[in-house]
């Protein structure tokens, strides 16, 4: 059984990686992608990588969090508003991160303690945060704080022949978050518990694992990562606007799913999820290169998500059939 699961995990990851390589290769051939295009995938999607990391934990436990787009927007609007009022960045950043953590934990608490459905709670969270954004300000607020400007422009430049690709500091930070997550999932008690809870909540609780605490913690982590993504997004755009990132939760969920995370929980790899984000970045790049309506990105991503879910479904059905056959043979 263990072997089977690892197999499907690896093969899903292979499909994802192959898709990325093929798409990128096609991009190099047809659009002349360069090294800078590759690095820009990280620069432009750093916030999404971080936010996806958060929702990835929730998906692993078999839950769902659709409030993250609004949390990102709230973080941007609220920090832009506070900075405009003259608060220092050293105060604003910890504060918004704390709010994200608290908000996520509260959602998790409601879900776990009162046995509410995750989607109802996080749907209410989505609307709550979005409404809070427009209560703070309906107009876009620009960020002019010197610290933000400095961090936003901090980057490393390479020189490769005549090309000068660059990677921003916050993109490197997102990569660090992914590596940290991989470490947590692989080597800490908490990370292993997350997988166990997603595999089977009942077995995990019979093994004496802290199921409830873990489930609350993943929602807290999701809120925290969303606000961290929000901080990165505010560095990326240097503004806060109440209607930004509408539908980002779908981007994050589909990144995770395209990267081989099962929506039923228990299976998935953070590297796959990160590649999922990069695939979406590629789609975005192609849509921009082709000068198409930006809505094509959303439509394509949604179609890709459907495709991957159907592949997963087919694989798990095949797996079940094979298991049944084995059981019949054994009997």
């Amino acid at each position: 059984m263990k072997l089977k699961r690892t197999f499907s995990e690896i093969s899903l990851l292979t499909i994802t990686l192959a898709l990325f390589v093929i798409m990128y290769g096609a991009g190099v051939l047809f659009y002349g992608f360069r090294i800078s295009t590759f690095l820009n995938l990280f620069n432009d999607n750093a916030y999404l990588i971080v936010a996806t990391t958060g929702i990835f934990f929730v998906l692993l436990t078999g839950g769902i969090d659709i409030s993250i787009g609004s949390v990102v927007a709230f973080t941007c609007v609220f920090s832009a508003w506070l900075l405009e009022k003259g608060f220092s960045a050293g105060f604003v950043i910890p504060l918004v991160l704390l709010i994200g953590l608290a908000f996520g934990s509260l959602q998790g608490f409601l879900i776990v303690k009162f046995d509410l459905q995750p989607f109802i709670v996080t749907l209410a969270g989505l609307f709550f945060m979005r409404a809070l954004c427009s209560v703070i300000s309906k107009a876009a607020i620009a960020i002019k704080n010197p610290f933000y400007l400095k961090v936003a422009l901090a980057k490393i430049r390479f020189t490769l022949g005549r090309q000068h690709p660059k990677i921003y500091f916050y993109a490197l930070f997102a990569v660090a978050v992914v590596l940290g997550t991989a470490f947590i999932l692989k080597f800490t008690k908490f990370g292993r518990t997350v997988y166990a809870v997603g595999g089977s909540e009942q077995s995990a609780s019979l093994m004496g694992l802290p199921v409830k605490r873990t489930r609350v913690m993943v929602y807290g982590l999701s809120g925290f990562c969303a606000s961290l993504g929000g901080v990165i997004y505010s560095l990326y755009t240097l503004a806060g606007y109440s209607l930004q990132n509408v539908g980002m939760e779908l981007d994050a969920i589909s990144s995770a799913v395209i990267g081989g995370t099962l929506l039923t929980g228990g299976v998935g790899s953070i590297f796959g999820a990160a590649i999922g984000v990069l695939i979406q970045g590629l789609i975005q790049t192609v849509v921009t290169y082709q000068n198409l309506n930006t809505w094509w990105t959303k439509v394509t991503v949604a179609a890709l998500l459907c495709l991957f879910i159907i592949i997963q479904r087919a694989m798990s059905v095949n797996g079940e059939k094979a298991r049944k056959n084995r059981l019949i043979k054994a009997a």
């Binding site: 769902i64 809505w295 439509v299 949604a302 998500l305 879910i309 479904r313």
Partner: peptide, 23 residues
């Protein structure tokens, strides 16, 4: 038929649908 959770299944159309309308 595909047995996706209703939330995710309809989330797809929630986001893509507005795109389709725009197109």
């Amino acid at each position: 038929r595909v047995r996706i959770q209703p939330m995710v299944a309809t989330l797809i159309l929630m986001v893509a649908g507005r795109g389709i309308a725009q197109l």
